[in-house]
Amino acid sequence: MMPIRMSAVRAGALRGAIEFRNSLQKPADLLYYLIGAVSFSAALWYFRDDIVPQLGVSTSAFIFPSAIALMTLFVATYGLATLVSTEREDGTLLRLAILPAGTFTYAWGQTVRTLLELAFTFGLFTILASILVPELWIRGAVGALTAIGFLLLGILACLPLGFIVGSIFSNPRSVGGWGFLVLGGIVWVSGIFVPLAAMPLWAQIIAQILPLYWLGLGLRSALLPEGFASIEIGESWRTIETIGMLSLWAVVGAVLAPLLLQRIARKESFASLATRREKAMQRV
């Protein structure tokens, strides 16, 4: 089994790299990165003089960790789910699933591609924020390392969720369309635009079940001055709860995602592919 694993790991890594390179060579994707970077910069610039009176730090310092959390969910869950359901429809998954270690290669390739996209996005945002927000690194190296730790945990929580959603919903247009609405709702109750403590109770409950709020909270706790905790629920960073909830999502996802993906890969057939092809063609 070892050489099979090794070659699948290699093929998957190469696959992820090729997919990411293809994305960087696609005008639509480049435009997406550009729009993301410009709107992020604009938000930072707009709030640069909006100093929080008691703390002496501008609101733009608050935007950076929140935007990173949001991008993690957007890329690793929403983007990945859309891709998985699209590639199930167009036969990419079937083509690999009939090969030795093919489903694993597919999943690992998507993971590598997602990680590369996240690294690229984070790098871009970090450079922009470092230029535009003077107090960004107020917590120094320890803060930055803690943030990286929370970020890795957040990725582990969000990425399997992307595979799960993409496996459950087979129509890429519903994942892209309805998924975007659901994503909007999740972001609204995530404590990013409005502090969660100021939201109604039901919104607080939903937010505290999902991983986005916790990832944002963890990143804020690492990068913002201690006093900022006063606007959070319980006026605390709740570090233990944050690690606990993100780990829970990561563990549940790590168990469920491979099972679901293998199940849909096994269920793929030429006939179902042909049917979906006809349906998709009619829609065009």
Binding site: A11, E87, G91, R95, I98, L99, P100, T105, F270
Partner: peptide
Amino acid sequence: VVLQSWRDHARWRVREFLHHFFVLHAPF
């Protein structure tokens, strides 16, 4: 298996696409 392909891997280049499957088959 020769699949009736549709639009999968559309942005891949021909050689790297075939090479991908070569790597997957390498142990066998």
